[in-house]
């Protein structure tokens, strides 16, 4: 059974695979997009976060075949031709990256957060991002990156 997936604006045909494969598996192993990471396989850690028709989802919990006809956006599409996104740059500037395994999922999640809450307070940030586990940073520099990105957006608006 073949099906089509639109990922980052590009149409792909996924050929004769087992239809039980998750979107995460298909992105990583069939479409050559390993930016989304697998760390828990049950939607707890957020490492595999992608946008599905603009909604933040855990791609490990989405059947790839069920994403046919929908718009999938991954971390690979966050940086534009002009370079890193403001969130990516803030992660670097704030020192929010250590091992980096949670980083791609967080980059996607923070973009989504700032769309909905352009100036989140501390508890809002912490509650909104509680679905993205990080084991290295204790979240301090990640929260600093969110503040930095939000402030820079507000300053340039």
């Amino acid at each position: 059974m073949n099906y089509k997936l639109s990922v980052n604006g590009t149409d792909h045909t996924v050929e004769s695979t087992w239809e039980g494969e998750s979107l995460l598996y298909v992105l990583r192993e069939r479409l050559g997009l390993p930016g989304a990471k697998g760390a828990c396989e049950q939607g707890e850690c957020g490492s595999c976060s992608v946008l599905l028709d603009g909604d933040l989802v855990c791609s490990c919990l989405v059947l790839a075949a069920a994403a046919e006809g929908r718009d999938v956006r991954t971390v690979e599409a966050v940086a534009g031709p002009e370079g890193l996104s403001d969130v990516q740059q803030a992660f670097l500037d704030a020192g929010a990256v250590q091992c980096g395994f949670c980083t791609p999922g967080l980059i996607v999640a923070v973009h989504d957060l700032l769309e909905r809450h352009p100036q989140p307070d501390d508890l809002t940030m912490r509650e909104e991002l509680a679905g993205n586990l990080c084991r290295c940073t204790g979240y301090g520099r990640i929260m600093e990156a969110v503040r930095m990105a939000a402030d820079r957006r507000a300053a340039s608006a």
């Binding site: 990471k37 890193l84 395994f101 980083t103």
Partner: peptide, 10 residues
């Protein structure tokens, strides 16, 4: 690491 290009062992 922020663009998703960093190659982990996985």
């Amino acid at each position: 690491k922020v663009t998703g290009e960093f190659a982990y062992s996985s």
